[in-house]
Design a protein around this nucleic acid. Structure first.
Lengths: 110, 110
DNA sequence: CTTATTAATCGTAATATTGCAATGTACTAA
DNA sequence: TTAGTACATTGCAATATTACGATTAATAAG
């Protein structure tokens, strides 16, 4: 089917899945890492940095923007993208809550 | 195409993407949360806990096992699944490295 | 206005994912 | 052996994702 049955899960679970899906492609991981590294806005450099075609990068950027993880500003003919820090921090908190479930207390049963 | 061009990305980026993809479905998030909550092994309870059919759960478990995030032991007619703590910790370190990129130093350019 | 540049959008092909019915396998119990 | 239980596998349909060529939209420069 390819259609996730989101209605049977909690909002939190669905939210975690949505963010995780955004990181589920190396191109988007790469884009985000680059935006962090540059520590300022990047425009079409991403197309050169990463080896994918311009429409492909544009599509990945659109997804990240839709999730609120990045912001984009038009600047002349080019567009300036950067991390949305506030939303990134909120996302990080949610992911850490999931990743940091208590591992130490488990008894080794398997 | 639906085919990620993994060869143009670093091993780290691809690894992050693979783990993230595993969390990119609420059912798998739910399965993992349940395994943590139970704090011991779980067998077929997952089918009842989550509202999906048995083959579907089995498939999600297979993916998580393939990634090394969970372990499964046969126990009589049932199978006992639990978190692979060592691999989970390693995965967590990798993800945190990605999530914890320095946000504070950025200048607000967008 | 014309042309160049940059990025978004459209359309489409190739591939991946999700979900489940049907079936298979392995073990247990009677 | 037979029947039952628990889980895995297979096969398939529906949908999603990825990638890119072609095109469009918007701005800038001449």
């Amino acid at each position: 089917m390819g259609l996730a049955k989101t209605e049977m899960f909690t909002d939190e679970q669905n939210k975690i899945a949505l963010f995780a899906k955004a990181f589920g492609h190396p191109a988007r991981v790469s884009i985000l890492q680059h935006l962090f590294k540059i520590d300022s806005c990047v425009c079409g450099d991403l197309v050169n940095e990463i080896g994918l075609a311009q429409p492909t990068i544009s599509q990945h950027l659109k997804e990240l923007k839709h999730l609120g993880l990045i912001k984009g500003n038009v600047e002349g003919t080019s567009v300036c993208y950067c991390i949305d820090k506030e939303n990134w921090t909120a996302m990080k908190a949610l992911m850490n809550q999931f990743l940091d479930q208590d591992v130490s207390l488990n008894n080794d049963c398997c």
